[in-house]
Amino acid sequence: MTSVTARTTPPTPDLRRRPRPGDIAARMGFRFAAGLTIAITLGILIALIVPSVEFFSEVPVNEFLFGTRWAPRFADASFGVVPLITATAWTTAIALFFAIPLGLGAAIFMSEFAHQRTRRILKPVLEVLAGIPTVVYGYFAVQFIQAVVFRDWLKLETGSFSVLSAGFVMGIMIIPTIASISEDAMSAVPNSLRQGSAALGATRRQTALKVVFPAALSGIIAAIVLGVSRAVGETMIVALAAGQQARIVGGPLEAGQTMTGFIANAALGDSRVGSLEYNTLFAVGLLLFVITLLINLVSIWIVRRFREAY
């Protein structure tokens, strides 16, 4: 039978294009999801910009950016945002001061030194930290760190609030973010590089710091940037623990109101839509957005400049 069919000419192959509705539906679906994300982002941006434009028609940009007195609700209102920026800068810097070394240290340990079993336990435990609601962190900062540790135990000269307690606790909050993403980045570095380094007589420490860390730098920077963005945008902890008075913060033990802290305190729903007070919220929000955007741009530049792609 095979010999018979082999001799007859096979039928012309049917290569015609055929409808694949599943493919079309999937492509439409993905396109919709991608489009919606962009649309929502643009929508938020417009919602931020429109009231901000109104705000800047009443308050000059210079006065807003460089003014040193923030008193939007006073009779002699003043809209200098510098005090809010100093508080945000202090809390963010303090948070990163604790979170970057601890987070990266934990990541390097998990990726390069810990046994598999230790890592399997440690990583989920660390990630639980990320699941704690920030309001809990906020009360922890104000009731325990500030009141008990700083004032009762260490006898520090500080009031009920400080940027130090808010920043410190915020640092604890972002450790898992930095540790987890950096660990992912370092674990993704091919083992062949570790072996190549070991074969040259490098110690684990040298391999970790001189080969794996630079190779994972782009992921590590991404982790830090995410940490910075979370610190700049974090609201509940600073609203509870940093203080509610907008004044220029000169030291870590002083209290101060951050940009997010101001928005949280002022946005209680009692400001009339379209009023200057209402627009102020959006102007500060837009400033936050711009700052985060700048951080992102700088980090992209850093990654391009320094990364060792493998």
Binding site: P190, S192, L193, Q195, G196, S197, A199, V211, P214, A215, E308, A309, Y310
Partner: peptide, 10 residues
């Protein structure tokens, strides 16, 4: 040691 797949550092 030289490995199967070239593994230069990045």
């Amino acid at each position: 040691m030289v490995f199967q797949k070239p593994n230069p550092f990045p």
